[in-house]
Design a protein around this nucleic acid. Structure first.
Length: 961
RNA sequence: GCCGAGGUGGCGGAAUCGGCAGACGCGCGGGACUCAAAAUCCCGUGCCCCGGAAGGGGCGUGUGGGUUCGACUCCCACCCUCGGCACCA
């Protein structure tokens, strides 16, 4: 007998429009009660979807189908992040309008979604490039402007020379453009910014209340980069004060120089006339460097002395002012105090440029060293050291002493007696103490450091070229690891604060500074304001007008949207290339004025789109406040990790802003976030013909065009590397269900995984087996419609029944919990295998068969909806799968009558016993049954049982000797 | 350098609470069907050793140590891989 073969093409065609037509995916937006807002990050419609994209959309569709069957009122919308550079580049290259390019892609995406069986509430479709959407993006800009959170400023900005556009900080990845990977340059431009830094503290603090992957929260935390510290004012001899930021105010007494960033506004004023030229040249050079060159930690710390001095307010000593490019204008105050003894960078700088090093913080490990050079000590020292049990080594006549700091005075007293006249030694630990026969000198201030240097140079001609004590000490290899440290510890050489323990040092110093009016405690963030101007056409125009009389004037709300001008050709300058766009009337004085020609960063478009879905057609407001507060925050948001900082930070900021305006009752947009991993695939690179699609690669990884050996790498599927797998091909060969099943089965959804053709075939085989089994069961079941009765079950039925309920439980819990749907699929496969074996029994219970197949079809349906819908109807069900409630598992049915109890003897499993569950549930009975078992008895032959641990229904562990 | 995630068969991975390591799938080996191949189905499959076989034994979750009757799981130290940040004072 041959059964009907599984034919996905016919079957999927049949059901593809069924769900859509029934309106099963439409949210009942005004209905109160059990609501769930599920959202996939909306895509940028470029080209076509590939199998890698399926990771996002198929996962989402499965979740939504599950939720619908669980009876949730689900809002599951889709839209298009439709503004952006690729559309514009394609337009410039191909001479078509970016809008046409975009809408062609959108049509393709929709076709592919439907082919996958991925459905949305399409009544709510939005596209950020449509005037009815970007009108409200412009409205958002005006609101931010009104509240002083949108501002125009001149400054150094990131400029991508390839895209010819400015970039926000978040869009510069390791010094390169996030889109095209070109090296980013700095340009001085006047641009629009959003004051996201005003929300830094809340963006940081509120991470705590989010159910997001820990690593995403950590990334945002690091990006915001909160540092507590102090601002300290340093007077200068020339007049103006310099404000520095430091996280280590407790090291103030060790500040021996100041460094300004090359862009610091006080640089020209504080430069001595004779230094002006050198300083100017240095700053100009720094400006020309790329971010990568400048921030390379490899290169030596360069800098130039301004020729003038500041006063360390704690020590009242004169300290030189330098300019150096390792200080960044964008962080803190753009000026630092150099504390070389306790900061690695300052130490390097001080060593290179011969600046004094003064230790002011105790070393935590309390180690000190002393080097006594050959010929500088009198005989008897070695014996005396040994006598006092100091540990030392003698090499080439010199002594290398290592001691605990507690014994420093003792050691100094001892060694001083043996130092030859005209020589010295020193003890280097937390303090630097120089021991001369005539006396002891501590390097605790610049003055002392100078005095010590002077004495040493006089005594030792070879040191004449040394500029600082640190330089002398650096020359002694033995000391190098003790010359700076960045640990916390007790303050030393710090005037009135000396002796303050490390745990209080910062707080005490800040108090002291505040009291003296020298500074105050502050908090600084790495986060910078969000630069949103883009010099391009295909974006939302910034709704501002420049009037020669009134200055910058906002477009009145009633005049929104500021429409993109209709043009045939787009230039590289964007709106600035379109003369007819520019002239307008000043809304304030009515005189002639010019429109702002920048458009907004596309991340502004996507920073609020999730709000629009509740009322996508509203012409009066960006969103219906009542609906938005009913449906949001988004219950589950799914998308790629690549947005961990960019989009997710911006969306949080805008949500908080709208909350503060009183428009939203919530202040976080996405309650739960799930980031799915990327799909990788081999990519082949030929030096001459660049990226070669894997399908075309010849035998032995050779280029099909020139035969050259190809460079193979496994990389995320992408159009640019040509290593994509097309869903269209997959669906033509195996059907959408096979692709869906494999996509969800291939591994944990959050992990990055390599696509495998063999894996796809495995899913194909499973669906074929499932199909054949289902048809066989349907034949067996015939017209039977009754529910099975567990009281009639034999042992086999009992086992299958328990397995069915266990499987339903497992699948349900995965959907509701950690979303490891790969394990849910595995459980379904296991159950299918068992059901299939049972169905081949000579006399299976048709009622049980029917019920098992029924539930199996339902729990498999979110994964492979087409085949399940087909079988569902063949089971004689009238409604759609999605109109049927999800199976409920019966906790009492989960348990089988018998359990297998492994018996461990001395930690190794030696025997397995099948016992009735009721007996195994009682530790005492369990123990007795195990001990009386013949197999266990023989194993214990000749052994003395010392201890027995019986874990009910789990295992028994016997310790015997 | 700092922060985070991870390391389990030939491969993807499972073991959610300290209780049978390797579920499920791929691959591979053997067999059936076939003139043959593909497809499909059945059996086997962590590694090593003893045995003709039935069977038996040892080792085994990155490395070394610890806690425990019992550790992939907990603790300490270290190694490696991946991701993020990085001259942020």
């Amino acid at each position: 007998m041959t059964r009907e073969a599984y034919d996905p093409q016919t079957l999927e065609k049949k059901w593809r429009d069924f769900w859509h037509g029934r309106g099963l995916f439409k949210a009942r937006i005004h209905e109160a009660g059990k609501k769930f807002y599920y959202l996939n990050m909306f895509p940028y419609p470029s080209g076509k979807l590939h199998a890698g994209h399926g990771r996002n959309y198929i996962l989402g569709d499965a979740i939504v189908r599950f939720l619908l069957m669980r009876g949730w009122n689900v809002l599951n919308p889709m839209g298009w992040d439709a503004f952006g550079l690729p559309a514009e580049n394609a337009a410039i290259e191909q001479g078509i309008h970016p809008r046409d390019w975009t809408w062609t892609n959108i049509r393709e995406f929709k076709r592919q979604f439907r082919a996958w069986g991925v459905e949305y509430d399409w009544d709510r479709e939005i596209a950020t490039c449509k005037p009815d959407y970007y009108k409200w993006t412009q409205w958002l800009f005006l609101k931010l402007y009104e509240k002083g959170l949108a501002y125009r400023a001149k400054g150094k900005v990131n400029w991508c020379p390839h895209c010819e556009v400015v970039l926000a900080n978040e869009q510069v990845i390791a010094g390169r453009c996030w889109r095209c990977h070109s090296l980013v340059e700095k340009r001085e431009l006047e641009q629009w910014y959003f004051r996201i830094t005003a929300y830094a503290e809340r963006l940081l603090r509120d991470l705590e209340k989010l159910d997001w992957p820990e690593h995403v929260k950590k990334m945002q935390e690091n990006w915001i980069g909160r540092s507590e510290g102090a601002e300290i004012l340093f007077p200068t001899e020339k007049g103006p004060e310099i404000k520095v930021f430091t996280t280590r105010p407790d090291t103030l007494w060790g500040a021996t120089f100041l460094v300004l960033a090359p862009e610091h506004p006080l640089v020209p004023e504080l430069t001595a006339p004779e230094k002006a030229e050198e300083v100017k040249a240095y700053c100009a050079a720094a400006e020309r460097m790329t971010e990568v060159e400048r921030t390379s930690t490899e290169k030596e710390k360069s800098g130039v002395f301004l020729g003038t001095y500041a006063i360390n307010p704690a020590t009242s000593e004169r300290i030189p002012i330098w300019v150096a490019d390792y200080v960044l204008m964008g962080y803190g105050t753009g000026a630092i105090m150099g504390v070389p003894a306790h900061d690695e960078r300052d130490f390097q700088f001080a060593l290179t440029h011969r600046l004094s090093v003064i230790p002011v913080i105790q070393r935590p490990e309390g180690l000190a060293k002393s080097f006594v050079l050959e010929g500088t000590y009198r005989p008897g020292l070695e014996e005396a050291l040994a006598q006092a049990s100091f540990s030392f080594e003698k090499r080439d006549g010199s002594l290398y002493v290592t001691l605990r700091e507690e014994r420093r005075s003792e050691y100094i007293d001892l060694v001083q007696r043996f130092i030859a006249p005209g020589s010295w030694t020193e003890v280097i630990g937390s303090r630097w103490v120089f021991v001369f026969p005539e006396g002891i000198m501590n390097v605790g201030s610049i003055a002392e450091e100078r005095a010590v240097l002077d004495l040493c140079r006089k005594r030792e001609a070879k040191l004449a070229n040394k500029g600082t004590v640190a330089e002398i000490l650096w020359g002694v290899e033995f000391y190098r690891d003790l010359l700076f440290h960045a640990e916390y510890g007790e303050m030393i050489n710090s005037g009135p604060l000396s002796g303050t323990p490390g745990t209080e040092a910062i707080r005490k110093t800040v108090e002291w500074l505040t009291e003296k009016g020298l500074g105050k405690g502050t908090v600084t963030y790495k986060l910078r304001d969000w630069l949103i101007s883009r010099q391009r056409y295909w974006g939302a125009p910034i709704p501002m007008i420049h009037c020669p009389k009134c200055g910058v004037v906002p477009v009145p709300e009633k005049d929104l949207p500021v429409l993109l001008p209709e043009v045939n050709r787009i230039g590289k300058l964007g709106l600035a290339d379109i003369p007819e766009f520019i002239p307008t009337q000043c809304p304030r004085c009515g005189g002639p004025a010019r429109r702002d020609t920048d458009t907004m960063d596309t991340f502004v478009d996507s920073s609020w789109y999730f709000l629009r879905f509740v009322s996508p057609k509203d012409t009066e407001r960006p969103f219906d406040p009542e609906l938005v507060n009913k449906w949001l925050p988004v219950d589950l948001y799914v998308g790629g990790v690549e947005h961990a900082i960019l989009h997710l930070l911006y969306a949080r900021f805008i949500t908080k802003f709208l909350h503060d305006l009183g428009l939203l009752s919530f202040d976080e947009p996405f309650k739960k976030l799930f980031t799915q991993g990327m799909v990788t695939y081999p990519a082949y690179w030929c030096p001459t013909h660049l990226w070669i699609p894997p399908k075309e690669v010849s035998e032995g990884d050779r280029c099909p065009k020139c035969g050259a050996g190809l460079v193979v790498s496994v990389a995320a599927m992408s159009k640019s590397k040509k290593n994509v797998v097309s869903p269209d091909d997959l669906i033509a060969r195996y059907g959408a269900d096979t692709e869906r099943l494999y996509t969800l089965f291939m591994g944990p959804p959050e992990r990055e995984i390599e696509w495998s053709e063999e894996g796809v075939r495995g899913s194909w085989r499973f669906l074929n087996r499932f199909w054949t089994m289902a048809l066989a069961i349907l034949e067996r079941v015939g017209e039977v419609r009754e529910e099975p009765d567990p009281r009639e079950f034999g042992p086999q039925e009992q086992t299958l029944w328990a397995k069915l309920h266990t499987t339903v439980k497992k699948v349900t819990e995965e959907f509701e919990g950690r979303l490891a749907l790969n394990t849910a699929v595995a459980a379904i496969m296991e159950f299918t295998n068992e059901l299939s074996a049972y169905a081949e029994d000579p006399e299976p219970d048709p009622k049980l068969l029917r019920r098992a197949l029924r539930d199996l079809v339902l729990i498999l349906s979110p994964f492979t909806p087409f085949i399940c819908e087909e079988l569902w109807h063949r089971l004689g069900q009238g409604k759609a799968v999605l109109e049927t409630p999800w199976p409920i598992y019966d906790p009492t049915a989960l348990e089988e009558a018998e359990v297998e109890i492994p018996v461990q003897i001395n930690g190794k499993v030696r025997v397995r016993l099948r016992l009735p569950r009721a007996k195994a549930a009682d530790p005492k009975i369990l123990q007795d049954m195990v001990l009386s078992s013949g197999e266990v008895q023989s194993r214990l032959q000749g052994l003395q049982v010392e201890r027995i641990i019986a874990v009910p229904e789990k295992l028994v562990s016997i310790v015997a000797r």
